[in-house]
């Protein structure tokens, strides 16, 4: 297992290196951020001075070398637009995004699993069909549209919930969290629901098919024959068995939730990293874009690793080794 993890980490470093190089070359190819950031009335001399101050006058390979050098020391550079270290900028906004993603994840589990179970058990009933049809909407409706509709319905027409932004926060271990206050929760409901919509549908479908399959298994028949209550059969035996694939998918989806919260964050003016990355791409703020993508890749790598390890723990038949051809 140790050897497996070590090998994985080495591979990850290689992936990160490639990733940073791709972003570096990509942004370099688009153009010079100073062209966008500087006031158009500034003279050529002022423009040149700004380019030198950002180190953009050096050849690309030198710039990349300097980046690697400080990256090894844990410094991913300072943002051109904010003049703040890129990692600090991301760290400042990460709690908001993580909070949103965690709540969205919880919503999709707490709604998705029971609904999927229900639909799986009553697949020919009215409830089952309705749930399954609605889950198709969850897959197919575009997030930005649903978000706007949620705002129109719950904020503008009904006036129940605030339309956008993050609510009141309280500091916990120095991290500002909003789900601990009533105002914060009110602000969280709509964006979290919007972000979780796809995942609710996904969990419903996974639970639905898992339940249907499991109900035909011998152990369920045996438990029935043994006279166990139906609640215990479903709540313990069936659920336990169908949870393994759901856990895997949900864990992987968590990374996606964080990385792709961008749309929900822009619709709901949620001050998270999605908003930051959009703004940074808009002004070719390379240090922030590179840092963000490296962070996202790291996140996916770590989640993947955890899932693989967890899988081997949950299912003793799985062994951790690299596939060999």
């Amino acid at each position: 297992m140790i050897a497996f993890i070590v090998r994985r980490v080495l591979q990850s470093v290689f992936v990160l290196l490639i990733m940073s190089l791709l972003v570096f070359v990509g942004i370099y190819a688009i153009g010079n951020p100073v062209d966008i950031l500087i006031n158009p009335e500034a003279t050529q001399a002022e423009r040149a001075a700004t380019i030198v101050a950002f180190g953009l006058d050096k050849p690309m390979w030198v710039q990349y070398g300097l980046f690697l050098q400080s990256a090894v020391a844990g410094d991913l550079g300072r943002s051109f637009a904010y003049s703040t270290p890129a990692l600090t900028l991301i760290a400042q906004r990460l709690p908001a995004t993580l909070e949103l993603a965690v709540v969205a994840m919880l919503v999709s589990i707490l709604l998705g699993v029971p609904l999927g179970l229900w639909a799986g058990l009553r697949r020919d009933g009215f409830a089952g069909r309705t749930i399954m049809s609605l889950s198709i909407l969850g897959f197919s409706l575009p997030t930005f549209w649903v978000g706007l509709m949620l705002i129109m319905l719950f904020s503008v027409n009904l006036g129940w919930l605030p339309s956008s932004g993050r609510g009141q926060t309280v500091e916990w271990l120095g991290i500002p969290l909003s789900f601990l206050t009533l105002d914060g929760l009110k602000h969280l409901v709509l964006p979290a629901l919007n972000l979780s919509l796809f995942n609710i549908a996904l969990v419903i479908r996974l639970t639905h098919s898992g339940t249907q399959e499991a109900m035909l298994q011998d152990y369920v028949k045996f438990a029935r024959a043994k006279g166990l209550a139906s609640r215990r059969i479903i709540g313990v035996h069936v659920l336990k068995n169908i949870l393994i694939p759901i856990v895997t998918v949900i864990a992987l989806q968590f990374g996606a939730l964080i990385a792709f919260a961008i749309v929900t964050e822009s619709i709901f003016a949620w001050p998270g990293i999605g908003k930051l990355i959009i703004d940074s791409i808009r002004v070719l703020d390379r240090p922030v874009v590179v840092a963000y993508l490296l962070l996202t890749v790291t996140l996916f790598i770590v989640i993947n690793l955890i899932v693989d390890v967890l899988y081997s723990v949950l299912d003793p038949r799985v062994r951790l080794s690299d596939a060999r051809g």
Partner: peptide, 18 residues
């Protein structure tokens, strides 16, 4: 001063009284 980049959301915030 709130910052709402999306124009539709900005208008919705006004309509909702936020």
């Amino acid at each position: 001063i709130r910052f709402i980049a999306n124009p539709s959301t900005r208008l919705a915030a006004l309509l909702a009284g936020d």
